[in-house]
Protein backbone atom coordinates (compact mmCIF):
# COMPACT_ATOMS: atom_id res chain seq x y z
CA UNK A 1 0.00 0.00 0.00
CA UNK A 2 1.30 3.48 -0.80
CA UNK A 3 2.37 5.88 1.92
CA UNK A 4 1.19 9.50 2.14
CA UNK A 5 2.67 12.40 4.07
CA UNK A 6 -0.16 14.75 4.88
CA UNK A 7 -0.11 18.24 6.37
CA UNK A 8 -2.94 18.08 8.91
CA UNK A 9 -3.57 20.89 11.41
CA UNK A 10 -0.02 22.13 10.97
CA UNK A 11 1.79 18.86 11.52
CA UNK A 12 3.02 16.11 9.20
CA UNK A 13 1.16 12.80 9.38
CA UNK A 14 2.23 9.59 7.70
CA UNK A 15 -0.53 7.30 6.50
CA UNK A 16 -0.31 3.99 4.69
CA UNK A 17 -3.48 3.31 2.73
CA UNK A 18 -4.95 2.73 -0.71
CA UNK A 19 -4.77 5.69 -3.10
CA UNK A 20 -8.55 5.98 -3.39
CA UNK A 21 -9.26 6.00 0.37
CA UNK A 22 -11.36 9.10 1.02
CA UNK A 23 -9.67 11.75 3.16
CA UNK A 24 -12.60 11.50 5.62
CA UNK A 25 -11.72 7.87 6.45
CA UNK A 26 -8.05 8.74 6.78
CA UNK A 27 -8.91 11.51 9.24
CA UNK A 28 -11.29 9.43 11.33
CA UNK A 29 -10.03 5.86 11.19
CA UNK A 30 -6.27 6.46 10.87
CA UNK A 31 -5.72 9.82 12.59
CA UNK A 32 -8.60 9.66 15.11
CA UNK A 33 -9.90 13.11 14.29
CA UNK A 34 -13.60 12.89 15.13
CA UNK A 35 -14.94 16.26 14.06
CA UNK A 36 -15.38 15.65 10.31
CA UNK A 37 -18.33 13.27 10.31
CA UNK A 38 -19.71 10.78 7.81
CA UNK A 39 -23.18 11.82 6.69
CA UNK A 40 -23.72 10.72 3.11
CA UNK A 41 -20.44 9.77 1.42
CA UNK A 42 -21.67 11.63 -1.65
CA UNK A 43 -20.74 15.29 -0.99
CA UNK A 44 -24.42 16.05 -0.42
CA UNK A 45 -24.63 16.99 3.25
CA UNK A 46 -21.40 18.79 4.17
CA UNK A 47 -20.89 17.16 7.57
CA UNK A 48 -17.39 15.96 6.58
CA UNK A 49 -16.18 19.45 5.58
CA UNK A 50 -12.53 20.37 6.16
CA UNK A 51 -10.46 23.31 4.99
CA UNK A 52 -8.09 22.58 2.11
CA UNK A 53 -5.74 25.56 1.92
CA UNK A 54 -8.40 27.62 3.71
CA UNK A 55 -11.32 26.63 1.47
CA UNK A 56 -14.21 24.48 2.70
CA UNK A 57 -14.14 21.11 0.95
CA UNK A 58 -16.09 17.93 1.59
CA UNK A 59 -13.69 15.14 2.50
CA UNK A 60 -15.88 12.08 1.94
CA UNK A 61 -15.13 11.78 -1.80
CA UNK A 62 -11.66 13.29 -1.80
CA UNK A 63 -9.06 10.57 -2.50
CA UNK A 64 -6.09 10.75 -0.18
CA UNK A 65 -3.81 10.56 -3.23
CA UNK A 66 -5.08 13.95 -4.43
CA UNK A 67 -4.06 15.87 -1.29
CA UNK A 68 -0.35 16.29 -2.03
CA UNK A 69 1.13 19.19 -0.06
CA UNK A 70 -2.19 20.94 0.59
CA UNK A 71 -2.77 22.21 4.11
CA UNK A 72 -5.68 20.39 5.71
CA UNK A 73 -7.42 21.98 8.70
CA UNK A 74 -10.08 20.19 10.71
CA UNK A 75 -12.29 21.56 13.44
CA UNK A 76 -9.82 20.23 16.02
CA UNK A 77 -7.15 22.41 14.45
CA UNK A 78 -9.11 25.60 15.14
CA UNK A 79 -8.76 25.35 18.90
CA UNK A 80 -5.58 27.08 20.04
CA UNK A 81 -3.05 25.28 22.27
CA UNK A 82 -4.42 26.98 25.37
CA UNK A 83 -7.88 25.59 24.59
CA UNK A 84 -9.32 28.86 23.34
CA UNK A 85 -12.03 28.40 20.73
CA UNK A 86 -11.93 30.10 17.32
CA UNK A 87 -14.18 33.17 17.05
CA UNK A 88 -16.57 31.23 14.78
CA UNK A 89 -16.83 28.43 17.34
CA UNK A 90 -17.49 30.97 20.08
CA UNK A 91 -20.24 32.54 18.00
CA UNK A 92 -21.95 29.15 17.57
CA UNK A 93 -21.87 28.65 21.35
CA UNK A 94 -23.15 32.17 21.99
CA UNK A 95 -26.10 31.72 19.62
CA UNK A 96 -26.72 28.13 20.80
CA UNK A 97 -26.64 27.26 17.12
CA UNK A 98 -26.77 23.49 17.37
CA UNK A 99 -28.99 20.68 18.51
CA UNK A 100 -27.62 17.18 17.93
CA UNK A 101 -24.36 18.77 16.77
CA UNK A 102 -23.53 16.25 14.06
CA UNK A 103 -23.59 18.83 11.25
CA UNK A 104 -21.84 21.43 13.39
CA UNK A 105 -18.36 20.63 12.06
CA UNK A 106 -19.48 21.37 8.51
CA UNK A 107 -21.34 24.52 9.50
CA UNK A 108 -18.34 25.95 11.38
CA UNK A 109 -15.77 25.03 8.71
CA UNK A 110 -17.92 26.40 5.89
CA UNK A 111 -18.45 29.61 7.85
CA UNK A 112 -14.71 30.05 8.31
CA UNK A 113 -14.18 29.51 4.60
CA UNK A 114 -16.89 32.08 3.81
CA UNK A 115 -15.47 34.66 6.20
CA UNK A 116 -11.96 34.10 4.81
CA UNK A 117 -13.24 35.39 1.47
CA UNK A 118 -16.02 37.70 2.55
CA UNK A 119 -15.59 39.21 6.02
CA UNK A 120 -19.07 40.75 6.18
CA UNK A 121 -21.53 38.61 4.25
CA UNK A 122 -25.19 39.57 4.00
CA UNK A 123 -28.09 37.21 4.59
CA UNK A 124 -28.21 35.98 0.99
CA UNK A 125 -24.47 35.35 0.87
CA UNK A 126 -24.61 33.39 4.12
CA UNK A 127 -27.47 31.24 2.86
CA UNK A 128 -25.65 30.61 -0.44
CA UNK A 129 -22.46 29.61 1.34
CA UNK A 130 -24.23 27.14 3.62
CA UNK A 131 -26.52 25.66 0.96
CA UNK A 132 -24.43 22.48 0.80
CA UNK A 133 -24.69 21.82 4.55
CA UNK A 134 -27.72 19.90 5.77
CA UNK A 135 -28.97 20.33 9.35
CA UNK A 136 -31.78 17.95 10.21
CA UNK A 137 -32.52 19.36 13.66
CA UNK A 138 -33.45 22.74 12.18
CA UNK A 139 -30.93 25.08 13.79
CA UNK A 140 -30.69 27.14 10.59
CA UNK A 141 -31.97 30.47 11.86
CA UNK A 142 -29.51 30.32 14.76
CA UNK A 143 -26.69 29.27 12.45
CA UNK A 144 -27.31 32.33 10.26
CA UNK A 145 -27.23 34.46 13.43
CA UNK A 146 -23.98 32.78 14.53
CA UNK A 147 -22.32 33.58 11.19
CA UNK A 148 -23.29 37.24 11.60
CA UNK A 149 -22.06 37.29 15.20
CA UNK A 150 -18.77 35.71 14.13
CA UNK A 151 -18.35 38.20 11.28
CA UNK A 152 -18.76 41.09 13.72
CA UNK A 153 -16.20 39.67 16.15
CA UNK A 154 -13.49 38.96 13.58
Amino acid sequence: MPTYHLNINGSQKKVETEADTPLLHVLSDYLELNAPTYGCGLSQCGSCTVLVNGTATTSCMLPVSSIGKSEITTLEGLVSDNGKLHAVQRAFVKEQAAQCGYCLNGMVMTTISLLNKNPSPDDVEIRNALEGNICRCGSHTRIIRAVKTAAKSL
Partner: peptide
Amino acid sequence: IPRTEIPAKVDGSALFAIDIR
Protein backbone atom coordinates in the same frame (compact mmCIF):
# COMPACT_ATOMS: atom_id res chain seq x y z
CA ILE B 1 -29.16 28.84 30.61
CA PRO B 2 -26.88 27.66 27.79
CA ARG B 3 -26.90 23.97 26.96
CA THR B 4 -24.15 22.12 28.80
CA GLU B 5 -22.97 19.99 25.90
CA ILE B 6 -22.73 22.56 23.09
CA PRO B 7 -19.10 23.57 23.82
CA ALA B 8 -17.98 19.93 23.47
CA LYS B 9 -19.92 19.62 20.24
CA VAL B 10 -18.41 22.83 18.86
CA ASP B 11 -14.79 21.83 19.59
CA GLY B 12 -15.20 18.27 18.32
CA SER B 13 -14.61 16.56 21.67
CA ALA B 14 -18.20 15.28 22.11
CA LEU B 15 -18.36 11.61 21.17
CA PHE B 16 -20.99 10.06 18.95
CA ALA B 17 -21.03 6.26 18.70
CA ILE B 18 -19.48 6.53 15.24
CA ASP B 19 -16.41 8.11 16.90
CA ILE B 20 -15.75 5.07 19.10
CA ARG B 21 -12.60 3.16 18.19
